[in-house]
Write a protein that binds this DNA or RNA. Sequence first.
DNA 1: CTAGGGTTAG
Length: 709
Amino acid sequence: MNGNISLKLLKKSLCTTTVHFKEQPLSPPLTSLQCGTILQSLTNTKSFPKGQKLHSLMVTSGNLLNNTYLSTKLAAFYANCGRMAQARVIFDGILLKNSFLWNFMIRGYACNECSLKALVLYREMLSFGQKADNFTYPFVLKACGDLLLVETGRRVHSEVVVSGLESDIYVANALLAMYSKFGDMGLARMLFDRMLERDLISWNTMISGYVKNGNPRKALEVFEKMGKAELKADGTTLLGILSACAELMALKLGKEIHAYVVRKSGEIRNEFLTNSLIEMYCNCKSLAYSRRLFDGVKLKDTVSWNSMIRGYEQNGDAFESLRLFCRMVMEGAEVDEVTIITILGACDQISALQFGMSVHSCLVKKGFGANIIVGTALIDMYSKCGSLSCSRRVFEEIPRKNLVSWSAMISGYGAHGQGEEAISCYHELVANNFTPDEGVLTSVLSACSHAGLVNEGKHIFNRMTIEYNVKPRLAHYSCLVDLLGRAGHVHEAYELIKTMEVKPSSDIWAALLSACRLHKNVKLAEVSAQKVFEMNPKGVGSYICLSNIYASEKRWDDVERVRAMVRSKGLKKPPGCSFVEVDKMVHRFLVGDKSHPQTHDVYAKLKELNLRLKEAGYKPDTTSVFYDVEEEVREKMLWDHSERLAIAFALINTGPGTTIRITKNLRVCNDCHTVTKMISELMNREIIMRDIHRFHHFRHGFCSCGDYW
DNA sequence: CTAGGGTTAG
């Protein structure tokens, strides 16, 4: 029988069964050539267990002794399987290392999260006198990129130039990828434009580079040019473009890509594409499209679930998001950190504290507790659900805090009106040798504005550029305008807007408008309202704010004029809506809601409360009602505000002394604020209420905001 | 032996 056939048989047995091979040692022994061929095929298929067996066979039969050729192949095999420790043992035993071996080892390290070792080995290679070649550089550059070693990367780049390999397409593409990881798209673009030859990978690298660096428009531009260059998009291209569409909410293009994917489903296969489409539709607020795709996916992976769950969460449907999460768990899909982060986000929207706490214990069991993003999401969840002490505890337990976790903690204090704590947390951060970034500064400035800490806020604002080299951006100006305006310095706020270095946004004018409502400055209110209407004609909140101002001045003609504007634009005021959690169930009440099963009891409770409050001296403050109607009607219009329904419901369904937590989608009105203070005293309950801006802690007839909000 | 690939907190 000739040797070729037995070799084929052996190959076959290795590829199909492993038991057979182990039980029947091969005889006669394999030649080195045979071993080499088999190893090669095992390397290509990454058949680790089989290769390991062949390895032991080669050791016992002496094939490896003094055989550099086979040893090299074997090291390459282990490296390709990502078994770098084993590869290294063999590598170290080889005296005559050729470039193939060096390259394979560097690649192994670079592709298996040992980028630093890849770089060390690269330097070793050079000092051994082995020259780097076109196979070496791509992985060295990848390692530099992954480690974000900008200086090292540049040095390797210059070595590439010296070696004359800059025009090698693999090397050139690796350079593009490296600079895009560094965030230097300008340089990447320059290299890309200078390339004499570009392939699909070059284009894809540029597209995904622009997307990852927050420049989706440029990504689309490159995509368009790519079409002109008559290059056909593949799955990777489309992934990048879909991300860009999602980012830009470019539904039309997204749909075209979708159609293209369906049309080319024979040629373009990419397991990620459907998830990417789901994500794109979610971002474009087309939940129905997403859901249809999602429901059609037979084998939903974690990412499909995550994207869909997040879609609902981001589009304000926290309930559907939580329902889907429960389904995910029941169907046995694997929950990961991203799922948890998303679900915690859904919990904060509706203040589902108890649900959030059970997610907390679940994530600890799963071992996600050490993930800093999860930790930060927890801080946020607890503070948004009204439990700042839990936030602090989670915060303390994060061993290596980053700026985002600090920022979340500071924001938490801010939202709860604890300005002093926010500032001391900020000082703590500085004392821990962190340099505040934009986000941290926004959080602390916002905390100052909630607590009315005018001098502290101004001080931080004035020093941020000098001390931390952070130029004030819109968010910072917005906080400062809010801070000044709320504290009654509306003219100073106005001056600030007029002199600020960035173009004021509609939000900034809206902050001033809101301050004008608080301090009854009709003239300036009209100026700022005009600006908001120009810049954000669909923002219904500002029309309401202005008409509230007129209503409080009893200028009913003006109220009607503004209301007519709202009508003519076809805008609708979102109905007031409050959430309250009882026994792990979150209940939702709309203004005037009569749909809840316990409606009857709730309204009876409200009636009883109304009487008792009046006995206690309550006088309704009807200035928040902006209809020109009889006083009695106006009073009634206050009484079915959603937060009151929620409070009444909670009073009925929870034991004496239980803290009540309410979350409202709009700002709490003056009268509700007064009523809640009184209820907290009368019923001896702590009521924690979150409105669209901040928290109010009501206890014994007082609110933590000190009526400053 | 080579380069590029979707979801995550303020």
